[in-house]
Nucleic acid binder design. Structure first.
Lengths: 205, 205
DNA sequence: GTCTATATGGGGATAGAC
DNA sequence: GTCTATCCCCATATAGAC
């Protein structure tokens, strides 16, 4: 189940195969997000990626292996996002607020498809998929990063505070998705930021 | 799509057919909750309900019709719950706090399968199912009830406040489900209640 | 490495005996 | 109203030519 990972070595070697592999992962990533994991068929992915169905069993032996590739891909994107924030700002508070603002960046996507991490976790948990822990670890990664920023601000309630920020953000995206309400997303996320600001400025929470 | 509803007339007539229909709905309700809608097959339901597969096409022409029956069933349960609270308490605040406490009642279920309304909405929205609005209306029903209680307490921010309570509750259940963490559920729900109490007692929010 | 043709299984749904 | 046998389709997955 973890053996597929090493197959990714030739990615940087620059062969056409690497391009194909990445195309498949990128297409699957998008479709798993838009339609969900179960509802996405190989045909869907093949069409989207422009790669014949049969071919990509060469890259991924099973659909689960493909899911693993997609989760790894999302993990890399997330890591890149967070380390980007680390590099861009020195002030941990600025980092955090930028993240919270950025969560609304893909506004339409979130309204239409929900949070990529939250919805995937929910689906995999419900179906009892073996890879649910991997999806959960994406959420945990972001929670830890938030906690790190809070700790850098000298807060001793960093872990719980971070958890609550994540909780509220997930609640907002879930409802915005369920209601298909763009306005709800923007307004409630602003409310979350306002609350974080107030707490950081000394209000008890 | 709505024609199946009138089939429910004979339910109270007390024939064996009515029992069967209810058994099917009850089994489907439970399985849709535990495994999700897509992942639940007719065979699963047939086994659980003790009714042969072929038979229940007599009651539901399609899987979607069955889903509609399940959503109606959940709506009735929800209505019963809320009117029960209305009858049990005169004080709207007591009603609200009882509801918020009760949300943790099925603790283990929530940790394992999430919120019945939230997870169903998420799944139907993601797959673009025609019945997503029906699922959404379950959430809306509960939000309206909360708003009604808040308004009865004389709050002029009732609609937004109710929405935020729902948002936070959904966030808590989503994370508790994703993490499979019983402790998280209890603790964060207590935090939500604490926050509601504080706001009701005059703290700005 | 690439792609076509195909196997296999399980899903929803139907026909029709009882 | 009840239940069995069966159909069809589409999904994942494989075999093997190129």
């Amino acid at each position: 189940m973890a053996e597929q990972a090493d197959k990714r070595q030739p990615v940087e070697a620059g062969g056409r195969g690497a391009e194909n592999r990445e195309r498949i992962v990128a297409a699957a990533d998008r479709l798993f997000y838009e339609k969900g994991f179960q509802a996405t068929s190989f045909s869907d992915i093949a069409d989207a990626a422009g790669v014949p169905k049969g071919n990509f069993y060469y890259y991924f032996k099973t659909k689960d292996a493909l899911l693993e590739g997609v989760i790894d891909w999302r993990r890399q994107c997330l890591k890149k996002l967070l380390s980007g924030l680390n590099a861009q700002y020195d002030d941990p508070r600025e980092r955090l607020m930028t993240l919270l603002t950025g969560l609304c960046a893909g506004e339409d996507d979130i309204v239409r498809y929900g949070c990529p991490m939250g919805t995937l976790s929910a689906e995999l948990c419900k179906t009892g998929h073996e890879m649910k822990e991997q999806a959960q670890s994406l959420l945990e990664t972001i929670r830890e990063w938030i906690a790190t920023q809070l700790q850098a601000m000298g807060r001793d309630d960093a872990p719980e505070f971070a958890r609550e920020i994540l909780t509220r953000s997930q609640g907002v995206t879930l409802l915005a998705h369920a209601y298909g309400d763009h306005h709800l997303l923007v307004e409630e996320m602003a409310r979350v930021r306002h609350w974080v600001t107030a707490v950081l400025d000394g209000q008890p929470h």
